[in-house]
Nucleic acid binder design. Structure first.
Lengths: 227, 227, 227, 227
DNA sequence: CATGAATGAGGATTCATTCAT
DNA sequence: TATGAATGAATCCTCATTCAT
């Protein structure tokens, strides 16, 4: 227990520090100080500075995938499942943003050679989790795009990433969605499903009516298209 | 001019090196060597290592915005303009990927304090360029989403980023689009406009027919929806 | 006894590790692991890392001196006693080589300050043991050099050291001597007694005949000498 | 020049420090301080701490071999050449003792992997230089031992090493030899040639008579031997 | 007695930056 | 202007030593 305790303290410290600075700008002295452990202690649990950040990233990532999987096990409607997964990812992007910077950074440097594979695999894991959900949407006819599921999943992730990181988590009016409030709003899901040509957003409600209207207008729009 | 030449050589070297490694993993020795310039020379044109990479990022960014603006000046249809902007951004993401990593990195570190403002402003510039294009789409009725234009622009950027960086520029089947092949495929634009619920992608061709089919199917799909 | 057992295990481990690496390149972790003892246990028997290696060296040294003394107590001919001592030292140099490196190292570093005196004394002990044997040779007329006995002893040690350490224990042809084979060959003794000008070595056998032949040839050689 | 100057200052500093302490006990900070250069400067001329000490050792070694070779080129009598080589080696062992400790140390650790080969080769070079001289002695009949030349050379080196290092350069009475006084005395050469059974040392004269007497006595001695 | 987790002083090494030429 | 040798602050990592169990 004591060991695990220190290990966790170190990981938490690393993650916290990663909020404000980058891998190379963080010293292990700082990590040790913030974790309130001796400098050498870090090397009892991690082989390396890289290893520390790698494991920190992995831990967070795994946690996020866990959240999504958890929801997948319950029998929810496609929409609901997609919304929850979306919210889960979004929360992670926002609250544990450093982890994703770590992952991105880790995938670059050559020092990541050892970890690179594992990291890519994890990322693919996430994509596949989302792809599976979208696949269900296809099965029930709510997703009709002929694009590969993985591509759709990547697009969704890209949007979530944009929402959480570029926009600082505020998607403008209409974000608040409904009750829960803390996570991703339905806007993303709606947009993901019906695109910019669909009518949704500030006034977004989901439901058959809205969906229907979207498509009708869409047809018109296409009709108007020149080239 | 000889000076400007060296300056450019240095910037190019920095950008190239940034392809494979991160800011802190690149030494000015390397930059100087690759630029075929004395190490001290760097300090004649840049006040700092940070400054060098900041200016490098800015130069690339500016170039990209230029491409988009250029197309904006010609009178093109909304679709065409969106497609071109999309392609421009996509090419940049792919071919000059390092620049975007640089920007992201630069926005983090504390050393960026001075530049931070300028960078954020540039980024906003890009978003606004895209937002303007999307705004035109709204004007002509092809965009109906109630989401703020800037949000839509961010979503689009997020998707492009995902396509270029996560998927290595290959969006899977359907990517090949038409002849040119090198840039963004219509898939993104189509997806951006009609979402996952629309039918497009692998079999996507643009033109009225394809569009019509998309919407028809979509309506059916909506009809089948349970909740 | 259990304690003494651990003490010995630790010493043995230290000696073994010293075969391949140097004092500073050996960690107490390794020693503990190899001795199958807890790291802290080392500090129950030794005050220090230096102390551990000092005591290890001493133990080996003492052992070697013991071998020589043992032979000294029996009444043997000068030649035989010299041969045995020589073999004893040689075996030690070869089989327990690390000990001698330890001693040498120990005599240098400043940390050895405390032990230095004791070590020098031990070394002198060995030299004196050999000097005593050589002294007997002088008494029986087999040694005629006017050089001090201690100097002769040092020369002999130097040669043995060279043989064991520099030449990896193989003195080239003539080494095989007789049956036992493992220890010092007569070559050294012969060389020690008659020098390079004497005929011995490859064809050396001990016994009167060989000896006689050696000297006969030697005489001739001297006759031929120019200057 | 300036470069070479710094390089030499660093090497000299390293060698000096090596007089009193061992490789691992010397910090590069010290070396830099004593050489009066910046710490980083060391890395301009040496790739490594190991490399620094390796090159330092090599430089000294090479210098010594140079001295011996120099004498070899002049046409000297065997005796004289042997005496000079002996003196050269002896001086080096005494005055630049650290170098030999460095070499020995270097030949042990696994870090020497790269240098090990080169060092062994150098050592062999020295041995062969001496072996060549002894070979000349054989040619002129002054050396009759059937031991391989390299073995004889090693023995000689062993004795010189013993004299210089163990005995602190004082071989007791008779050391002063002749005029020059500073280097090795003829005692070693005499002993090397005629062994302990020969009459030499304090009263050593070399010449036919002494040599002859030695061998005669030797024969007697052998006759007296028991076993 | 025995242990090994925890510690932090200490050292090799890197690299942005300066400055004499 | 242009250069690159020189510098030393800064950082990762090791390992002897301690001490709570």
């Amino acid at each position: 227990m004591a060991e695990t305790d220190k290990r966790k303290r170190i990981i938490r410290a690393a993650e916290q520090l990663f909020h404000a600075r980058q891998f190379h700008e963080i010293t292990l002295d700082e990590v040790a100080r913030r974790a309130d452990v001796g400098k050498g202690t870090i090397y009892l649990y991690f082989s390396d500075k890289h290893d520390l950040f790698y494991q920190t990233a992995m831990a967070g990532f795994e946690e996020m995938c866990g959240v999504i999987r958890e929801n997948a096990s319950r029998r929810l409607s496609f929409r609901e499942e997609l919304a929850r997964a979306t919210r889960g990812v979004s929360d992670f992007f926002r609250l544990r943003r450093p982890i994703f910077h770590m992952i991105r950074a880790e995938l670059k440097g050559p020092g990541a050679g050892v970890h690179r594979g594992a990291m890519l695999q994890r990322r693919r894991q996430l994509t596949q989790l989302l792809a599976a959900i979208i696949g269900r949407g296809k099965a029930v006819g709510e997703v009709r795009s002929a694009l590969p599921l993985l591509v759709l999943a990547e697009y969704l992730l890209g949007m979530l990433r944009a929402r959480a990181l570029e926009m600082g988590g505020c998607a403008g009016p209409g974000t608040a969605g409904r009750g829960k409030g803390r996570g991703a709003d339905p806007g993303v899901v709606e947009f993901f499903l019906h695109g910019a040509a669909g009518r949704h957003g500030a006034t977004a409600r989901h439901g058959t009516a809205a969906g229907a209207r979207v498509t009708r207008r869409t047809r018109n729009a296409i009709g108007t298209r020149k080239k």
